[in-house]
């Protein structure tokens, strides 16, 4: 059973928080909403989990638009919000029991699953400890465990690893991947590129309520070309220095795409040259223009480059 979101939109007074969002999601697959603050990610998530009412759009599941029946959406989803909104006065087990109760699960039957989830989240030893005494990572894992209590078909995560150290983040990613292997689909809002790369099959890059680019991480990276060039002619490059470099590369035509960057002269290179060949070409061109190379970095495009080029505008 696949989920199809069509034309989802929301405005606040005269501001279009989300202009139009559409995507489809197969079981066990993941989609990421990637964008800066104010891009419309959180609005989209709040609409999907029924915390906000959409101005338009469809949430199609099994041939039905569930926006007409929000309670059906709530039964379908597990949700982990950006805020660590936990009840600090309950223990881990009590928190799970509370969540089971509000989801109409009898503790007799859901209790073993809850304890198993706590165990898989590495919280067995802390299960009788007050949540207020948990670390940030433990709270995140407990939050995730509570979202998985009903065995949801779709997991909606809004920046689930914010504020966690690398080890804690990797633990959570591993756990999420495990649940996805069991058929759980994932909708992820994040501005953590590695998280998006690790977990998702489809990425929607958003800005000011619109989707700028979408595709799989590999498809998106391939749109940038073969290599990314980051060049400096001095330690701190001013506008004048960047203009000089830009003039050098204007001669290369469609082979490169210029990107405005605060620190480097950054370009996406579409040609077929190898790294070594490209490096020589750059040194030659710079020497011809009588410009010094202070630093040069060549690398394959990553998701962050796709994001920066999409948001920063291509020149």
């Amino acid at each position: 059973m696949s989920l199809e979101i069509k034309g989802l939109r929301k405005s606040y007074k005269n501001v279009d928080a989300l202009k139009s969002l559409s995507f489809s999601l197969e079981p066990g697959k993941a989609v990421a909403l990637l964008g800066p603050n104010g891009a419309g990610k959180s609005t989209a998530i709040k609409l999907l989990v029924t915390l906000l009412q959409p101005d338009g759009g469809e949430f199609n599941w099994q041939g039905q638009n569930l926006f007409e029946k929000p309670s059906a959406i709530r039964n379908l989803l597990g949700y982990v919000s950006q805020e660590l909104a936990m009840d600090k006065q309950l223990t881990g087990t009590e928190f799970m029991r509370f969540c089971a109760g509000v989801k109409h699960l009898h503790w007799k039957t859901s209790g073993p699953r809850a304890l198993d989830l706590l165990d898989r989240m590495g919280l067995s030893e802390a299960k009788d400890q007050l949540v207020g005494e948990y670390s940030g990572g433990m709270k995140r894992r407990l939050d995730l465990a509570s979202a998985l209590l009903t065995e949801p078909q779709i997991l909606v995560l809004d920046e689930p690893t914010t504020g966690l150290d690398v080890e804690a983040r990797e633990t959570i990613w591993k756990l999420i991947r495990g649940f996805m292997e069991q058929g759980c689909s994932l909708i992820l809002a994040s501005h953590d590129f590695r998280e998006v790369q690790e977990l998702t099959d489809q990425v929607l890059i958003m800005e000011k309520g619109s989707v700028l680019k979408e595709g799989s991480p590999d498809e998106l990276k391939s749109t940038l070309g073969n290599l990314i060039i980051r060049l400096k002619t001095q330690e701190f490059m001013g506008a004048e220095a960047k203009t000089s470099v830009r003039r050098v590369f204007e001669k290369w035509g469609d082979e490169v795409t210029w990107h405005d960057d605060e620190v480097f002269a950054t370009l996406a290179f579409r040609g077929s040259d190898s790294m070594t060949q490209l490096q020589s070409r750059i040194y030659d061109a710079m020497s011809e223009a009588d410009l010094e190379v202070y630093s040069l970095n060549l690398q394959r495009p990553d998701l962050e480059d796709v994001y920066r080029f999409a948001l920063g505008g291509q020149r």
Binding site: R74, E83, M86, D87, H104
Partner: peptide, 14 residues
């Protein structure tokens, strides 16, 4: 204020 109410609002309460 703490966002806990949102947790309740996304629960499938009757």
């Amino acid at each position: 204020e703490l966002g806990f109410l949102d947790r309740l609002l996304v629960a499938p309460l009757i």
